[in-house]
Design a binder for these strands. Structure first.
Lengths: 112, 112
DNA sequence: TCGTGATATAATTAAATAGTGATACAGTGG
DNA sequence: CCACTGTATCACTATTTAATTATATCACGA
């Protein structure tokens, strides 16, 4: 008998889509890169990324709400860090897939 | 010596973010579910999803442009199928991560 | 409690995009 | 060539959201 793959419910799809959407913006997606070596304050992330303070803060809160990042207050500073390691694997997967695809596109463009 | 993690360039980030964004919409994300057993026409996907013909067509073309899906014409019908298996792993990763997070949230809500 | 610095949160504008209905296009058969 | 069917695209509306500026909140030290 065939295993009947059950389709995800609409609410489940919404939750999963929201997680993907949190990674679907280049400005936002760049921030976790600066957290690979450890936690950083909002200021530091602003300097590293070139984004404004308010903008960085909002991006960070979106990813924190999604459970991708977590924060810790120390005095005046709020230190952000990666809360969910699966972001590494997600990015690796997409990078690999995109890389393969671009190789394919290159071949199609050069070859016949 | 420390491996100096190189930050991705802005164009690379844009490409990766676009891939995530293609999965960041619940209506769109539901379509690949109907392709797990094999290819489907636009009509079939419309019936399965409850989305309009034009809407399905647009969602499909977004995912096809991203290399997630591929299409094949047979007569009047256009059959779509999954072109990149990494979508399975991406969804599995997110499902697992979201599941863990929700467990955590549940505990926080019920516990102290 | 007052001033200062770091961060978060309005309020607003501008751009991206999901959805819809109408129409154009492609393939098939008469 | 014409009618018909499935799909793609267009024009439009409504919603979402990134970015900015200004303001509010929070922690701290004088």
């Amino acid at each position: 008998m065939k295993p009947k793959l059950k389709a995800l419910s609409r609410p489940a799809l919404e939750i999963i889509a929201a997680r993907f959407r949190a990674l679907g913006e280049a400005s936002r997606l760049q921030l976790p890169q600066y957290l690979f070596q450890g936690e950083r304050s909002v200021q530091e992330l602003g300097n590293l990324s070139g984004l404004s303070q308010a903008n960085v803060s909002k991006h960070l809160s979106i990813m924190t709400d999604q459970g991708i990042l977590e924060k810790r207050r120390q005095g005046l500073f709020m230190y952000y860090s990666i809360a969910d390691d699966s972001i590494y694997q997600l990015c690796d997967l997409v990078c690999g897939s995109v890389g393969r695809r671009y190789g394919q596109v290159m071949k199609e463009l050069s070859g016949k």
